[in-house]
């Protein structure tokens, strides 16, 4: 890699890392895993930088690498994370929510399946279309809609109040 390549890569990281880092945090819900995921993503981007830098949209490549890395490790996370407690989020949108026990948004996302989480992050944080989300995740548009609807159904009870409030 030439010095120019290294400078280009550094500039790319500066321009894109905050965005990918935040997406990684929404996906993993854990700062240590976020750091690991972001570093692994940029390491792979760096390993192919000459090709990636000539692509039409290097950020799209990096985003896809992040998703692939995240989803390919979901079984490991299952081993190391506590199982989701379905009693903490009402199954039905109309259920009342006790705001005193309201969950932090990251905790709530962590109760979704990794694929559902990825769909929500792409659709509502990255603002990707259904078609783009389907392409990024390698699933059908119907599956994106189904997963999105199901995930929102579980999260909506929390949307009646300030979701950004963090648990102590």
């Amino acid at each position: 890699m030439t010095r120019n390549d290294a400078e280009e890569f550094t500039a790319f990281v500066h321009a894109t890392a905050p965005r990918l880092h935040r997406a990684a945090l929404l996906l993993t819900g854990d700062h240590h895993l976020t750091d690991d995921l972001t570093q692994a993503t940029y390491a792979r981007v760096y390993a192919s930088w000459r090709r990636v830098s000539r692509a039409d949209d290097p950020l799209a490549y990096a985003r896809r690498t992040l998703l692939n890395t995240y989803l390919s490790h979901r079984r490991l996370r299952r081993n190391s994370e506590l199982p989701a407690d379905p009693t903490r989020i009402p199954e039905h949108p109309g259920d009342d929510v006790d705001h005193a026990t309201r969950l932090d948004l990251l905790d709530a996302l962590a109760m979704l399946s990794p694929h559902d989480r990825a769909v929500l992050v792409l659709r509502y944080w990255e603002d990707r279309s259904v078609a783009d989300t389907a392409h990024d995740l390698g699933i059908t548009e119907g599956a994106v809609r189904t997963r999105s609807t199901r995930a929102l159904q579980r999260l909506r009870p929390l949307l009646g109040a300030d979701l950004t409030e963090r648990t102590p």
Binding site: A17, P18, H21, R22, L25, L26, D35, T38, L105, L106, L120, V121, Y124, W125, D127, L152, L155, L159, L163, T164, R166
Partner: peptide, 15 residues
């Protein structure tokens, strides 16, 4: 609201 909440939740998170 979800889109806004996601943005707000990670707004201060920087690598």
């Amino acid at each position: 609201a979800l889109a806004a909440a996601l943005r707000e939740r990670v707004r201060d998170e920087d690598p």
